[in-house]
């Protein structure tokens, strides 16, 4: 990858996340959920989740999920180079979960995360919050709360890479795959 450009800077992203917080709170109120358990997906999802967790002032500690063991590309590329321990501080059984990730594109990461979550127990419900939504979905997965949509003219080509860098400051970077 080369030729990266910043799509959104830290200030813009913090504002987006603040708006996501508000939207999430509305959804929770609407559904009558009072004590959700928030789970961020390694690595970018955790950075977003840490901020949302603060904004929503949740009591339960933040959960962290590594989906390396559940990825569907293991049979193609082998074990992901960065395997980190998952850490769910409390039981997920009968709990309302908010799953947080940075970018929603094909939906495969969320599929893996859901599989992983269900190996920990049977949650009452799972909501999905993502910082960036873009096209090219390959699975029937949709976010409940979205920070921003990638401009359509940028998203015409599926090879464009969208990456969150961080944790401090956050930046959303676009990269064009070469060749």
């Amino acid at each position: 990858m080369s030729a990266t450009e910043i799509y959104a800077d830290a200030a813009a992203l913090e504002a987006v996340i603040a708006r996501m917080g508000t939207a999430l709170q509305d959804k929770l109120t609407q559904r009558g959920i009072i004590d959700p358990l928030m789970v961020g997906i390694h690595t970018g999802g955790v950075w977003v989740a840490e901020r949302l967790h603060r904004i929503l002032m949740l009591d339960e500690p933040l959960g962290v999920l590594d989906i390396s063991f559940y990825r569907d590309d293991f049979s193609r590329i082998g074990l992901h180079p960065q395997v980190r321990p998952s850490h769910l501080p409390v039981e997920v059984d009968d709990r309302h979960l908010i799953l947080v990730d940075d970018v929603l594109q094909t939906g495969r990461t969320i599929r893996a995360a859901l599989n992983s979550l269900f190996d920990y127990g049977r949650p009452a419900s799972v909501m999905l919050a993502v910082l960036v939504r873009r096209g090219w979905r390959e699975l029937p997965i949709a976010a409940d709360v979205t920070g921003l949509d990638l401009k359509q003219e940028l998203d015409r080509d599926g090879s464009l890479q969208v990456k969150l860098t961080g944790p401090d400051p956050l930046a959303l970077v676009l990269g064009h795959r070469q060749g």
Binding site: F69, V83, P85, S86, H87, F118, D119, Y120, G121
Partner: peptide
């Protein structure tokens, strides 16, 4: 191995 240690703590 640190990553795999957590699997034993999952319900499944």
């Amino acid at each position: 191995t640190e990553g795999f240690l957590g699997v034993a703590r999952q319900a499944v």
